[in-house]
Amino acid sequence: MGKIIVSGASGHFGHATASGLLDRGAEVIALSRNVDKLADLKARGADVRAADFDDPAGLMEAMKGGEKLLLISTLRVGTRVEQHRNAVEAAKANGVKHIVYTSVVGGGLAEHPGVEQHDHYATEQIIRESGIPFTFLRNSLYSEAVSTAMAIPALLAGSKPDNAGHGQVAMVSRDDCVAMAVEVLSGEGHENTAYDVTGPELLTIPQAMAMVSEKAGKPIELQQVSDEEMYLYFDSLGVARKASDVVPDGPIPWASEGMVTFGQSIREGYFAVLSDDVERVTGRKPRSLSSVMDQHKGEWPL
């Protein structure tokens, strides 16, 4: 199947995908700014290489010999499009024949209100314009994020402000997103395709928090707030509003703009997408939000 480049291989998604590809006997080129975190992949036979998305020349060298690329979107919301452009240009210069990109539900919509989605839309266009065959994995909201980053503060406070209203989203397990990436990268016939990677059911944030409350045996008061009130809540936590104002290596590496417009996107129906792509491509049914919550319940403050 040729050598498969996995960017961001020290992150959770990249590491799990690289490991899954090695399980299938694939030749993996694992990229990271911190190669020390890839020692286990190297021990299993992966070709571990240092790469920085802000260093085009280094990226060009790091991608040599690769036939496919898993381009995992970087975390620098608002300024990551140029990083992604550097990666696509390095891939093209090295003759990469297939780019698999981790996008988001609604990634193909120019009019989407989500700030994070703007980056994904721009990146999808860059990849299309490169002429390299592509697969866009348009992932839904991670069930793991709902079960930890959303659930734990809500349980601690006994309440949660939220601006997503009663908009629906088919939360998906990161495990299923990884399984999709492994299948697409190691298989054939996925070129020039976009998959909606979703869980098995559409739920609202109030329904998800009610599920947390029931499983924990603790009340959670969901407070429906406006977008501006949501900004004020994050202001009270010391979160920067704009990605450009985030302090590098600071205590809070994200901006509230991304979170507030994400909630707005859910409220306005942009995430109300339910797909059977996970089962069709991987051959297994996607995990339910309930099962992911059960997995992480031990982390909850009960």
Score class of each variant (00 low, 15 high):
residue 3 K to N: 11
residue 4 I to C: 04
residue 6 V to D: 00
residue 7 S to D: 02
residue 13 F to C: 03
residue 15 H to P: 09
residue 22 L to I: 12
residue 39 A to E: 10
residue 40 D to R: 09
residue 46 A to Y: 11
residue 51 A to L: 02
residue 51 A to N: 00
residue 51 A to Q: 00
residue 64 K to N: 12
residue 68 K to S: 11
residue 68 K to V: 03
residue 74 T to N: 14
residue 75 L to P: 14
residue 87 A to Y: 03
residue 91 A to F: 03
residue 99 I to W: 01
residue 103 S to A: 10
residue 105 V to P: 01
residue 111 E to K: 10
residue 111 E to M: 07
residue 114 G to W: 13
residue 115 V to Q: 08
residue 126 I to S: 06
residue 128 R to C: 04
residue 139 N to V: 14
residue 154 A to F: 10
residue 158 G to F: 10
residue 168 Q to P: 02
residue 172 V to D: 08
residue 174 R to T: 15
residue 184 V to E: 01
residue 189 G to C: 03
residue 194 A to P: 08
residue 195 Y to E: 01
residue 200 P to D: 06
residue 202 L to G: 11
residue 204 T to V: 01
residue 205 I to G: 08
residue 207 Q to V: 02
residue 223 Q to N: 12
residue 224 Q to W: 04
residue 224 Q to Y: 08
residue 224 Q to S: 15
residue 233 Y to L: 14
residue 233 Y to S: 13
residue 236 S to K: 09
residue 238 G to M: 07
residue 245 D to P: 00
residue 247 V to Q: 15
residue 252 I to N: 00
residue 259 M to R: 10
residue 264 Q to P: 01
residue 264 Q to Y: 02
residue 265 S to L: 04
residue 272 A to Q: 13
residue 274 L to S: 00
residue 275 S to K: 05
residue 276 D to R: 06
residue 277 D to N: 09
residue 291 S to N: 02
residue 292 V to N: 04
residue 298 G to T: 01
